[in-house]
């Protein structure tokens, strides 16, 4: 029987992987993928918890919103990455440190 715990575990794993990817990768696209993973982990959790709201289907609804937003943000992020690339000729975020104090 797949219980809520399993979903959550998968979500947690997914989140950790995403986090790891986001923290370690030298490529902005890969980081974006990591972020996507974490986001998806969150969405998975939302869907999993949606089981307990059968009446309004709040979980499903929020998941949908989140997916849409994620798509939008990814589009924006890709656009930023593109611009960063244009400007710096690299998409390694370590090399883009204009904000260093």
């Amino acid at each position: 029987m797949i219980s809520l715990t399993h979903y959550l575990l998968v979500g947690a794993c997914l989140f950790c992987i995403g986090l790891y990817v986001a923290l370690t990768k030298r490529n902005a696209i890969q980081i974006l993928i990591g972020i996507e993973l974490m986001l998806n982990a969150g969405i998975l959790n939302l869907v999993a918890f949606g089981k307990f709201d059968k009446a309004a289907n709040g979980g499903q609804l929020f998941a949908l919103f989140a997916i849409v937003l994620a798509a939008a943000t990814t589009a924006v992020a890709l656009a930023i990455i593109l611009n960063v690339y244009r400007r710096y000729k690299t998409i390694d975020p370590n090399k883009v440190d204009k904000l260093k104090g």
Binding site: L19, L23, I31, L99, K100, G101
Partner: peptide, 17 residues
């Protein structure tokens, strides 16, 4: 304090984490 302000996104993230 300044040493945290690396300008690298991943460091900020790591710090947060």
């Amino acid at each position: 304090a300044r040493s945290f302000q690396t300008g690298r996104v991943q460091y900020y993230l790591l710090t947060t984490v």
